[in-house]
Design a protein around this nucleic acid. Structure first.
Length: 940
DNA sequence: GAGTTTGAAACT
DNA sequence: CAGTTTCAAACTC
């Protein structure tokens, strides 16, 4: 499994690019036209990617992907899928010349082989896809791949259902099963391809009139057109890969894939993106479903087998037990998603799902009978991708209560993530929040799932998925908790209706213990509130946007569905006070997202991730759970006001150093100052090792949790900027930076460059698209530009928007020759003008934290409000009630507007750079350095 | 299991 | 806005 992926992935990468280039012409011929004609579908697929890309800048991850297993895993899966899909498409859409080659080959050879394998291994389709991996990189998001798979399954299922199963609606369920079968079926692949690749989709659309609808829908969803380009490349690549991968695919064992994923169940949570992916997958699902109908199902999967598979999946999830609740939750979630998408197959499989609620039941009813088993696989597949890379990768779990969301959000890298979470909380408060009750979740899911059921499920699904992404996320979270709870509760779901008091009646301590136990796995934590009635942020449940459930030992709890009104009111009040109150506490740097998304699901725990507000620890040294940062498995950042920080996941100091590093690009003085530290640090740092690249940041170093992630980050970061190559150049050339840093960076960059180079090509496209998108959103001046800052001065929102853009821009920049330089440079040159430590801190946090928050966490509402909202006080010790950005404004407003923008930009960039040196003392030195930087900037 | 410590959240 | 209080989790015994 793993072995194949890695091996494959690299191959895929190489092949992909090569194929892209070489095959592009042929592919382009028909495919291009197809793309052009069917950009929408492509967009759709891409859209998710794009969205992610924006958020997370997925592309960069590709680089990582190549090196890392994870990347391989996901990419492979996706690529495999693509290949398969491509095959399927080819079969289906012989019309499309592109596919024809692979089609003939694949169909004849691969297909047959696959079928055989599939017979043995239902999952094969998924895994193989993973194995192929080439496309995956683009797809980056494992989830997507999973989604694709799922979609495949769905499509295939649909077909099968149409053919054999007869149950149309249940198609989902069947589809799951079908997936397995589909493995063999090119049609499935085609669907997947469609999902993954615009072209394939096009072909599918062409072939499938109905499918076309779904595709169109998808396209609509996927706003970014630029994606089409990428898709084309993917397609071409996929085609190329298909041939090469065909063999691989044949070899691939679905089970392995599943297992991998299953292993990943634990990591599933980490793969927050997965949730998103799941959403996407849902979308894809719908699309696929639509498309599936048309596609003939070759494979004949036995429901029993499928069920078995599903069972196996569920079992796996269960087995992961320790991953426990989360794992289950994850699994459950995934299943839920699947259920939603594919009604309840997963649920049916697991007793756990029993708790789920009617919605599941409803869906499951049909699905269960049919074959939930496959669903689990799907779910697993979907989730696992991230996972797939490995359970081992498991990102640091977000232990935290409210953290679930946060963690999820974080994981979600998606740009939407943060907002989504918020939205979810807000929008889904009633629904998802009631996560306790599966019903609530189910409701959300139902929404998602419903579409499929509905006549126009596709469209609905797509729309839902998009809109519901947030919901799904929230639902995911809630579902996680719920899943766990439900599993524990089992039948207690009904109890939800029971007054809180029931729970309350239980001895809080006992419950607490239970909770603690349950939470050990990191499931959802449960509260033990006694005086706040669970209507304040003290309550983890409330803070997480979920209703209290059985496990809670709270007293007089009002955080229950029965009191939804109160809950909402209270939430509003709190939000009015602090729009970000319910936003995810942990934010990942943009750069990470992409990496995390593509590279590894594991990355979820972002070494670079930081607490939104930062901690204020004084005695715990940030080494205990008192520290929110530590609790969240994230390193402390500048935003933290902690004293004597020893956060294993990343010391504030280190974080500062990184920033300084960037700033340093702007100012040499800092370099000189830092150089010593950097040297020492660098020596120690893994950075020296291109392979390890792990930044000095403790999080990377120390964190068991995030180590891998951290590594990936480093890679990703560097890669991300990617553009890597550009960055490297920039770093060297432009920034007078200390040679060391540059060197280290270069090291990393170089290491990644190769991959990046290849990837960059693709990414470039994406970037371009992204850029275009960014431009649309904002003509965001280059991150460097003050313009961005200027805008920010007035409104945080602008800054926020800009920030993300910056990320994007950078890439885009990387893509665009000029842009790349600027982009890179900004981070380098653009020292934040911030003079003051506070500013630095505030900014930093703002940059890092706010930055992230803004993008991710900031709910749209918040963003809007944030504009007007007062900036959070970075300086304020607590800074708790923060409204994110204002600091930036302040900072920037003075002079730094541009600088700030730069800073922000830098911040993002920072993450890319591993903190070589431990921080500088911090404030004093840093401030000076920054001042110096400012000076330098002015000079520049 | 009780009590203490801790730091966030809420309040003034 | 800073300081204080309240709160619940985390931790210790």
């Amino acid at each position: 499994m793993d072995s194949p992926k890695p091996s494959e992935s690299p191959i895929s990468h190489s092949s992909a690019p090569a194929s892209a280039t070489s095959s592009s012409s042929p592919l382009q011929e028909s495919p291009f036209s197809n793309y052009l004609s069917s950009l929408s579908p492509i967009k759709h697929d891409k859209a998710p990617h794009v969205a992610q890309g924006f958020l997370g800048l997925n592309y960069p991850p590709l680089v990582f992907t190549s090196p890392r297993i994870n990347t391989l895993g996901r990419p492979q899966s996706s690529s495999v899928e693509i290949c398969q899909n491509g095959e399927g498409d080819k079969k289906r859409t012989h019309e499309s010349c592109i596919l024809e080659r692979s089609v003939t080959e694949l169909q004849e050879g691969l297909v047959i082989d696959i079928k055989k394998e599939d017979d043995d291994k239902e999952n094969v389709s998924v895994q193989p896809s993973s194995s192929s991996g080439c496309v995956d990189e683009y797809l980056a998001d494992p989830v997507e791949a999973d989604c694709v798979n799922s979609s495949y399954a769905v499509n295939s299922n649909l077909n099968q259902s149409n053919n054999a199963l007869q149950s149309p609606v249940n198609g989902f369920v069947d589809s799951k099963k079908i997936k397995i079968d589909n493995k063999n079926n090119a049609g499935r692949e085609v669907d997947a391809v469609q999902l993954l690749c615009g072209p394939s989709e096009e072909g599918i659309e062409r072939k499938l009139g109905p499918d076309g609808k779904s595709l169109k829908i998808e396209n609509e969803q996927g706003a970014a057109q630029g994606l089409s380009d990428e898709f084309q490349k993917f397609e071409s690549d996929t085609f190329d890969l298909l041939s090469s991968k065909e063999k691989e695919c044949k070899n691939l064992d679905p089970q392995k894939v599943v297992e991998d994923h299953g292993g990943g169940c634990n990591g599933f949570l980490q793969q927050l993106p997965g949730s998103l992916q799941g959403v996407q997958s849902c979308e894809d699902f719908a699309e696929n479903v639509g498309g599936d109908v048309d596609v003939p199902v070759h494979s004949t999967i036995h429901d029993l087998e499928a069920s078995e598979l599903q069972r196996g999946m569920s079992r796996r999830c269960l087995q992961f037990g320790e991953a426990q609740p989360q794992a289950r939750a994850n699994c459950g979630i995934s299943t839920n998603l699947v259920d939603n998408i594919i009604p309840s197959a997963s649920l049916a499989t697991t007793s756990e799902t029993e708790g789920l609620g009617p919605s599941h039941l409803d869906l499951s009813v049909t699905s269960r009978t049919r074959q939930p088993i496959n669903l689990p696989q799907l779910a697993i597949n979907m989730i696992p991708q991230c996972y797939g890379e490995k359970s081992s990768l498991t990102v640091p779990k977000p232990s935290g209560i409210g953290l679930h969301l946060n963690s999820i959000v974080n994981a979600i890298p998606m740009a939407q993530g943060g907002s989504a979470s918020m939205k979810l909380a807000q929008a889904t408060k009633s629904t998802c929040q009631s996560t306790e009750n599966m019903d609530g979740c189910s409701d959300a899911f139902e929404k998602v799932s419903a579409p499929p059921q509905d006549v126009t499920p596709e469209v609905k699904v797509c729309t839902i998925a998009d809109s519901a992404v947030s919901e799904s996320l929230s639902a995911m979270e809630s579902t996680e908790c719920n899943m766990i709870l439900n599993t524990k509760r089992k039948l207690s779901s009904d109890q939800d209706g029971d007054s809180d008091e029931v729970f309350d009646q239980q001895s809080p301590k006992k419950k607490r213990k239970k909770l603690s136990n349950s939470t050990d796995g990191e499931g959802c934590k449960r509260c033990n509130c006694k005086k706040t009635k669970c209507l304040k942020l003290y309550c983890d449940c409330f803070a997480a946007g979920i209703y209290c459930t059985e496990p809670c030992s709270c007293q007089g709890c009002f955080n229950r569905p029965e009191h939804a009104d109160k809950v909402l009111e209270t939430r509003k009040l709190i939000e009015s006070r602090n729009p970000l109150a319910f936003a995810p506490k942990i934010v990942q740097p943009f750069t990470e997202f992409p990496l995390s998304n593509r590279e590894d699901g594991n990355r979820k725990t972002p070494t670079s991730a930081r607490h939104k507000r930062g901690c204020n620890c004084k005695r715990s040294m940030c080494l205990k759970k008192y520290c929110e940062c530590y609790q969240s498995n994230v390193g402390c950042s500048i935003g933290c006001r902690c004293e004597g920080c020893k956060n294993v996941y990343g010391k504030k100091e280190d974080y500062c150093v990184t920033e300084e590093m960037f700033n340093r690009s702007g100012g040499e003085r800092l370099e000189s100052r830092l150089t010593a530290k950097l040297k020492t640090d660098f020596l120690h740092s893994d950075l020296c090792d291109p392979h390890h690249l792990t930044p000095l940041t403790p999080s990377f170093q120390c964190s068991d949790h995030g180590k891998k992630a951290s590594i990936s980050r480093l890679l990703s970061r560097r890669c991300l900027p990617s553009p890597e190559s550009d960055l490297t150049i920039l770093s060297h050339a432009k920034s007078p930076r200390s040679p060391r840093t540059s060197d280290s960076n270069d090291m990393l960059l170089e290491t990644s460059k190769e991959k990046l180079d290849i990837e960059s090509y693709f990414e470039g496209i994406s970037y371009d698209n992204v850029v275009a998108l960014a431009d649309e959103f904002h003509h965001t001046p280059l991150p460097n530009h003050p313009s961005t800052v200027v805008g920010s001065s007035s409104s945080k929102a602008s800054e926020l928007t800009n920030l993300p853009r910056f990320q994007l821009d950078p890439r885009s920049g990387s893509l665009t020759s000029a842009g790349s330089l600027r982009w890179h440079t900004p981070p380098i040159t653009p020292m934040s003008p911030l003079d003051e430590n506070k500013n630095l801190q505030g900014l930093d946090p703002a940059d890092g934290g706010l930055f992230d928050i803004l993008e991710d966490d900031m709910p749209e509402i918040l963003k809007d409000t944030s504009m007007t909202i007062k900036p959070v006080k970075a300086g304020s010790p607590n800074g708790k009630r923060v409204s994110p950005p204002h600091n930036l404004h302040q900072l920037g407003s003075s002079s730094a507007g541009p600088l700030r923008s730069g800073r922000k930009f830098i911040l993002k960039a920072v993450p890319s750079f591993p903190p070589l040196t431990p921080c500088i003392d911090s404030k004093g030195s840093s401030t000076q350095s920054r001042n110096d930087l400012q000076e330098n900037r002015s000079n520049d």
